[in-house]
């Protein structure tokens, strides 16, 4: 297992290398001189030249790349051209809100999707199942921005239960944290609950007719325990990948929701730095998002060995 983990970690190196080439090229594939783009059309020749020097743009491309890569490997992602702050610090400052939102949304997704799926499978021969299918279909087709605005109107404006926007860190009190994150997390969760519940239901309906479930019933085990213990844990395996994809997506920052609710997360940062043509920050954020995806995937592969003992990598 440790050997496999190490091997997988090593295999991330070429992946991240290719990603870094692409990220590096962003600056150079955008038409026009990056320094001019950053400074604007009316900038003087001198200031453009100075910025080019600061960004290293006056050197050959290959030299620039390895120089850039070397710095990143040493933890130096460059400086924001907008605020002159180190890119790494800026990103770290924005992880908190996005991470909070991710955790909150994930908890909501699991808390609602799991019992719903179990209940639907329990009542699988009733009209509940077709109803469930329609509702989940409706759920996954809700436009996020529309639903967000609807909730804000309903629960922040008409009935001011929650704030219209804003963010409070976990450290400023759990209740305050929940108070600010509930609506955005709920919107993020809402579009995914249907998907996760549907995956779980499909998996459970497949497992429920397996021979080993009949064995469990033949032991005299209660149907509710059969469903929750035997059926559910087998259905969880195929659903894990879906949940992981959702987590990776949320961790990469959710531009629309973070913008609507003015949550200073990764998505917000990405949008802002694109407006400011702050290339070092854009590059840093994209590298960060790529790393998240790769790491979440690795984590899921490792998680599988715990969920399914038949999977052995060594």
């Amino acid at each position: 297992m440790i050997k496999y983990t190490l091997r997988r970690l090593f295999s991330l190196i070429p992946v991240m290398f290719i990603v870094s080439i692409i990220v590096f090229m962003i600056v150079h594939l955008t038409p026009g001189n990056p320094a001019t783009l950053i400074l604007g059309e009316e900038s003087t020749k001198e200031s453009v030249a100075q910025l080019e020097k600061q960004l290293g743009l006056d050197k050959p491309l290959l030299v620039q790349f390895f120089y850039w890569l070397k710095n990143i490997l040493m933890g130096d992602f460059g400086q924001s051209v907008y605020s002159s702050e180190p890119v790494l610090r800026i990103i770290l400052n924005h992880i908190g809100p996005t991470f909070s939102l991710t955790i909150f949304a994930l908890i909501l997704i699991l808390l609602i999707a799991i019992p719903t799926a179990i209940f639907v499978v329990w009542k699988r021969n009733s009209l509940l199942d077709p109803l469930f299918i329609s509702v989940t279909l409706l759920g996954v087709s809700i436009p996020e921005f529309w639903f967000a605005i609807l909730l804000v109107l309903g629960f922040a404006v008409t009935f001011p239960i929650f704030p219209v926007a804003g963010y409070a860190a976990f450290g400023d009190g759990v209740l305050n944290w929940i108070y600010h994150l509930f609506l955005p997390a709920f919107v993020l969760a809402a579009v995914e609950i249907g998907l996760v519940a549907r995956m779980l239901r499909d998996g459970m309906l497949e497992a429920v007719n397996q021979d080993y479930i009949r064995t469990a019933r033949a032991k005299g085990v209660k149907e509710s325990i059969v469903l929750m213990k035997h059926v559910f844990s087998n259905a969880l395996i195929p659903t894990t990948t879906v949940i992981a994809t959702i987590v990776a997506g949320l961790m990469g920052g959710t531009v629309i929701i973070e913008t609507i609710f003015t949550i200073p997360g990764i998505g917000q940062l990405l949008i802002d730095s694109i407006y400011r043509r702050d290339y070092p920050v854009i590059q840093g954020v994209i590298l960060f998002i790529a790393a998240i995806y790769v790491l979440v995937n690795l984590f899921v592969d490792l998680l599988y060995t715990f969920l399914d003992p038949r999977i052995r990598y060594d």
Binding site: Q210, D211, T215, A216, A218, G220, D308, P309
Partner: peptide
């Protein structure tokens, strides 16, 4: 019925490969 199943009347099945839950010891 549950008090009888597995207690007073037990059953074994045709396919031992699929009759045990694959993910539990």
């Amino acid at each position: 019925l549950r008090k009888i199943r597995g207690n007073k009347i037990s059953m074994i099945f045709q396919d031992p490969m699929s009759s045990l839950n694959p993910i539990f010891r």
